[in-house]
Design a protein around this nucleic acid. Structure first.
Length: 306
DNA sequence: AACAGTAGCACCCGACGTCC
DNA sequence: GGACGTCGGGTGCTACTGTT
């Protein structure tokens, strides 16, 4: 495949051919007439034939120029359309990668309010438990759990990663739950979750052994909570994600003890893109929603009917 | 008024040397 | 051997002047 002439020369030719003027072409391209003249001469030298006839006060395309011009203009028009499409998509589509439970138990129900505020921004959500690499994946914003120290990323802390056991009221109706260790009489959902050991340790119950229990793992707090509400056992969840279920009594918290992990939930995006209007819009909206949560709908705790 | 030619400037890039 | 700085040549531009 033969090499194309320099793109700057082709660009100058295309504009000059359309305007039939080096001066008008220069005005359009933001350069001087001399630069256009120079670029076109480069192109003519390269081709080995003149593309314009220089006449007093104006230029005209030669027959070779007339042969070339429509194809070049058409190619640039295709490029303009392609770039306009991409620019429009980049400006109006916000792509978010988020953890499952944040999406299902926090984001989705509120997204309508963001859409009302920003009807021109379309939100695309991808749920993943993996930490995405913004250098390789086309995401604008990520919601992830961790300590906030990700190189190259701007990180805004959303809320702490707290955990406490919850279950359905029916599961423990008529039972005497006096000590945290009494929970061990009940089915434990995802017993391999290290939060169980951490919570029991904080509750003063040392060296619990859950290894003889079925090693079921539900993979996301959303599913733990659903299983608990269905009466299948006790789940270790972050109460922040279940305020309505706790308030309505679909879930009860047998013990007040809530343990805070060293990890938190964060909203992140590449530092280089912190001036992107759509990213700023989503960040500001999430932070204001979180601030509203803290004021009005902070997880309320239901005591179990012991 | 419009294009062509030229001088001079800024910037880029490859070659090269130095350092660790 | 890789990172970094320096240097010189090439490129592409503007400003200016000449030509038609």
């Amino acid at each position: 495949m033969s090499k194309l002439p320099p793109m700057s020369a082709i660009r100058a030719f295309e504009a000059a051919a359309r305007h039939q003027s080096f001066t008008r072409a220069a005005e359009e391209l933001g350069m001087t007439q001399a630069a256009v003249s120079y670029q076109i001469r480069l192109l003519e030298d390269r081709i080995g034939a003149p593309l314009f006839v220089r006449l007093p006060r104006h230029v005209e395309l030669t027959s070779r120029g007339r042969q070339l011009a429509p194809a070049v203009t058409e190619a640039f028009e295709a490029l303009r359309i392609a770039f306009a499409g991409i620019e429009n998509a980049v400006r109006t589509v916000l792509s978010i990668t988020t953890l499952t439970t944040f999406a299902s138990n926090w984001l989705i129900a509120r997204l309508g309010r963001f859409q009302q505020l920003h009807p021109n921004i379309a939100v695309q959500i991808e749920v993943s438990q993996q930490i995405v690499d913004f250098a390789h994946d086309d995401f604008d914003i990520g919601i992830r759990s961790g300590t906030g120290d990700w190189p190259g990323l701007e990180a805004h802390r959303l809320f702490p990663n707290q955990f406490t056991p919850v279950c359905s009221p029916d599961l423990i109706r008529g039972m005497e739950l006096r000590e945290p260790s009494d929970l061990l009489k009940l089915p434990i959902l995802t017993p391999s979750d290290p939060w169980w050991r951490d919570w029991f340790t904080a509750a003063g119950v040392k060296d619990i052994d859950l290894s003889d229990r079925p090693d079921n793992s539900l993979g996301a707090q959303q599913f733990e909570g659903m299983a608990a509400m269905a009466g299948q056992g006790v789940a270790m969840i972050n109460p922040f994600f279940f305020p309505a279920d706790l308030a309505a009594g679909r879930l009860v918290q047998p013990f007040d003890l809530v343990v805070e992990a060293d990890r938190s939930y964060w909203l992140v995006y590449p530092k280089a893109r912190k001036r992107s209007p759509k990213i700023q819009a989503f960040r500001d909206w999430v932070l204001s929603e979180i601030a509203g949560d803290v004021e009005t709908t902070a997880p309320r705790v239901n005591r179990a009917e012991a």
